[in-house]
Structure formats: C-alpha cells, structure tokens
Amino acid sequence: MNYVLHLLIMIGIYLILSYGLNLVVGFGGLLSLCHAVFYGIGAYTGTLLMIKAGLPFLPAIFLGMVITGLFALIVGLPALRFRGDSFVLVTLGFQMIVFTILYNWIDLTRGPYGIPGIPRPVIAGVEVTELYQYFILVSLFLVVIVAILFVVCRSPFGLALKALRDDEMAAEGLGKSPVHLFLYAFVISGMVASLAGGLYATYVTYIDPTSFTLDESIFLLAILLVGGTGNMIGPLVGTVFMILLPEALRFLGLPDTVAPNVRQMIYGLTLITLMFLRPQGIAGEFKLR
C-alpha cells in the first residue's frame, strides 16, 4: 500500500512538471532542455526559505514560485530569441550553468552534500507526515494546477500559442507577438515546475543537485515526447509510462545493478521508435518541427 502511495505521489509530482512543460513544448513547439533547472530552483528556494528564513510551507512555496518565475524571465528573454537547434542549445547551456552553480555555491546550497532534514509541510496547523496525507496534498495541488493550465490552454492565449507553434510567420502576420506569448508560457511553465520542486523537497526531506541534472531535463522532455504534446492527455500517458516502466522492470526481477541501464535503454529505444512511427507521441496531436 505504501509502495503504491509512493508511486502515486511521484506520478503526481511529475504530472505537475510535465503539464507545465507541455505549455512550452506542446503548445509553444519549443524543445526546452532546462526544465529541471526550474524544478531545482523551486526545490532549493522553497527549502531555503523554510529553513533559513523560517517561513511556513505555503508562503515559502509561493515565494519560491515567484522567484523561479523571475528567473525563468531572465532565462527566457535571451533564450526565446532563438528557435530550433539554437534554442535547445541555449536552454541546455542554462541547465549546465545553473547546475554548476547549485553544485559549487557551497555556502548557499551546501553543494554536493545536499540539504537534509527539510521540514514537512504544515497546512492549517496539520503537519503532513503520513503518505496518504501527502498523496492528498499533491493531488490537491495537481488538480488546481491542471485546472488552471486547462483554462490557460483553452483560452485565446493557448490558441495563439498553438498558432505560433504551427507557423510563426503566419501567426505574427495576424498580430500575435512571439516575444510576449512565448515568454508568458516559459515563465508559467517555470513557476509550475517550481511548485513541483517544493513538493518534492518536502516529500523526500533531502535534496542535492544531482536530482536536477541535464539528464533530468532530458527525462522530462522525453515524458512529453513519448506521451505526446499539445493536449491534456499526452503528458498523462507519458508520465505514467515513464514512471511505471522502472517499477515494471523491478517486478520482472532485474537486478538493481543493471536495472537503471536497461530502463534508460528502453527510454532511448522508445524515442527512436516513436520518431519513426509516431513523431507526435502516443497521444499527441502535433509533430515536432
């Protein structure tokens, strides 16, 4: 039971991450490789605000989201001047730079030693310690986020974003501003990732930079590419598949020494196969450019 709850909580956190990223990748059509940065900054700012500034859980998380949003703005302004390979490279560059900072700014982040003993969330006087409580908390956040993103995606904003994704020149010809619309999407996606980071940090009560590497960014992108982007079902399919795959392998009795590699190989193979058979992902509606 605990095992199932743990999986559900992880799926919940990754759903928040992938729905947020979907706005940039699926609706904006931009392959971003720095989502783990926003996830990480969210986890670190939330944690540090709780531990060092003594803020309670909710204010810490929300302030963390604001800070991450500002950071996404700083990253997005230069990055969104590029498209295609160059955009991928610039976001990858920011991913590497921020990871280096998280890893080496020992005074603030404790670098590779990580931050242990992160307090559990306290909401309305109730400390969330039990798994089922945590599951409820994550589910609540997930529902709120998905509802907000659903409205955003269905709004004129979402439609304009899709237009820019399909044909930027034509959309610009209709008066859609790529600068503004992509930047909004990028910042929202960063803020949503920040929330997931805060939830993750207080759930596992320990963070170190290795949770927010380039590999993690690739993994998050892969979730969307496998599941499909541009609608609300794709990220669900992708997250469930990518999170449950390693568990399925565990049931097959693969020894722990080889399991991570086999899992990665399956991810790689899945990506290649999809690019041949279904470039829009399992449940997606838009093919990569």
């Binding site: 709004s155 004129p156 904003f157 439609l159 237009a163 044909d167 034509a170 008066g175």
Partner: peptide, 27 residues
C-alpha cells in the same frame, strides 16, 4: 501557411482575437 495542426475553426477563431485577449491571465 495555415496552422496545420489546428482545426479550420481554430484557424479562423485565433485571428478574431485581439492582443488584449491573449494574456494567460485574461480568462
């Protein structure tokens, strides 16, 4: 240059909205 992944309706609808509708917080 139609928006290939969008429906015919969406193609026309998106042209109807002015920029003031197109902020994420508008709805």
């Amino acid at each position: 240059r139609v928006f290939g992944n969008m429906t015919a309706f969406e193609n026309v609808a998106t042209a109807c909205y002015g920029p003031c509708f197109e902020t994420p917080w508008f709805p």
